[in-house]
């Protein structure tokens, strides 16, 4: 993979960064599923996708943009702490890239899905870890949240990442050959 910031990487990091900000400031970044928080966020998905398609640097920058916007926009004291809201976010896209890269030889779909899942878990674990270190949660509370919130959120991230990246790489057709209404009944 070519190194450094090409025009392509600059633009894609910017555009996906914009989506990360938009998902954060509108209600759109939240999907109502059963977690203690009442919803799973997909605001970190642009960072995952950036890592998958353009590599770790782009993933890191989008994570940074997401982190800063969640810091500026925070309504929870926890996220008004830059060590919790910004620092952990830098790793989402980077880790997603390495997972994708590692699994790619094996199977493209598995690689994308795994990157989505692990990227999301990275977010959960690092944010909560930081929250424990900074004294917002005790370890047991953090562990509870990590399981009850982190896993549904990682499943959501897996589905969304897979759908977006396949539709974009235009490889969706090879999963599904027939539409739902195709067969006579």
């Amino acid at each position: 993979m070519e190194k450094g910031l090409s025009v392509r990487r600059i633009v894609i990091a910017g555009v996906l960064g914009a989506i990360a900000i938009l998902l954060g400031v509108s209600r759109l970044g939240y999907i109502p599923v059963p977690t203690p928080a009442g919803n799973a966020t997909i605001m970190h998905v642009p960072a995952i996708i950036g890592g998958i398609i353009e590599g770790p640097i782009v993933g890191l920058i989008i994570g940074l943009i997401f982190g800063v916007s969640s810091f500026l926009d925070a309504t929870v004291p926890l996220f008004k702490d830059p060590l919790v809201s910004i620092f952990p976010r830098l790793f989402i896209g980077v880790i997603a890239f390495f997972v994708y890269f590692g699994f790619k030889r094996f199977n493209e779909y598995v690689a994308i899905g795994a990157a989505g899942f692990v990227g999301s878990m990275t977010n959960t674990i690092l944010v909560l870890g930081m929250a424990v270190i900074r004294g917002y949660f005790t370890l047991s509370v953090a562990l509870g949240v990590a399981i009850a919130n982190g896993i549904p959120e990682a499943i959501v991230a897996l589905i969304v990442t897979l759908a977006i990246v396949t539709s974009w790489k235009k490889i969706g057709g090879s999963i599904k050959k027939k539409s739902k209404i195709s067969e006579d009944i």
Binding site: S167, G172, G173, I175, K176, K178, S179, K180, I181, S182
Partner: peptide, 15 residues
């Protein structure tokens, strides 16, 4: 348009 296949796309509303 968001579905992979034309049939599914047109069928979204009726479903």
């Amino acid at each position: 348009i968001f579905e992979h296949l034309i049939g599914d796309e047109v069928a979204y509303g009726p479903f």
